[in-house]
Amino acid sequence: MPSIDVVIDLSAEQCLAHYAGGAQHVYARSRDGRRVVFPAQALRRIVGRDGVHGLYRLSFTSDGKFESLVALSSR
């Protein structure tokens, strides 16, 4: 399965925008500088009291659909 490592730095308030219906997608930057877009619902499993901060591995199917998001390191 293809993957890309992304840095995510979102406050708790920014993460709550998804639950309020204000955010459908998350925009992040990969470690190699590419812009990456993935579904905001992916944050549900990883959001904490302070939001989401750290390096994550974004995995997707061969046709480019989101599959999983796993923490590699977090702050």
Rank of each mutant, 00 (worst) to 15 (best):
D32G: 11
I4S: 02
D50N: 11
F66C: 08
S68N: 14
E67I: 01
R49L: 13
A40P: 07
A12T: 14
L10E: 00
Y19V: 11
G33K: 05
H18Y: 15
M1F: 09
A40Q: 08
E67Q: 15
E13N: 10
F38C: 01
L16F: 09
L16A: 14
D50H: 11
P39V: 04
G51N: 07
I4F: 03
H25V: 14
A42M: 09
E67V: 08
K65T: 10
V70S: 12
K65W: 11
F66T: 05
P39Q: 07
A42N: 05
S68I: 07
E67H: 13
H53K: 10
D5L: 08
R45W: 09
L72K: 10
R44D: 15
V47K: 06
V7Y: 02
Q14D: 08
A17M: 11
G51M: 03
G54D: 03
L58V: 00
I46R: 02
Q14E: 13
I46Q: 05
Q41G: 12
Q41S: 15
K65D: 10
P39D: 04
P2G: 09
Y56F: 15
L72R: 13
R34M: 06
H25D: 13
L10R: 02
D63Y: 12
R49P: 13
A42Y: 02
V7W: 01
H25K: 14
L72I: 10
L72E: 06
Y19M: 12
V52S: 01
G33L: 04
K65R: 15
I4W: 00
V6L: 02
S74P: 00
Q14H: 07
D50C: 06
A20Q: 14
R45M: 11
V52E: 01
G54Q: 01
D9V: 07
D9K: 10
G48T: 13
M1H: 11
Y27F: 07
L16V: 02
R57S: 07
A12Y: 14
D9A: 09
D5N: 13
G48A: 13
G51R: 02
D32E: 14
S11E: 09
L69T: 04
E13Q: 12
L10A: 01
A71Q: 05
F38H: 01
Q41H: 15
L55E: 02
P2L: 07
G51D: 04
A42E: 04
M1P: 10
R45G: 13
A28S: 09
F66D: 05
P39F: 04
F38E: 01
H18S: 10
V70L: 12
I46N: 01
R57M: 03
S73K: 13
S3E: 10
G21M: 08
K65S: 13
A23G: 00
L69Q: 06
R35I: 06
S59I: 06
R57K: 08
V47R: 10
S74K: 11
H25F: 14
R75N: 12
I8S: 00
R31E: 13
K65F: 12
R29I: 09
L69M: 11
S59Y: 07
L69H: 06
S30M: 02
V26C: 06
V7P: 00
F38I: 01
G22V: 02
S59W: 08
V70M: 12
R34E: 06
D63G: 10
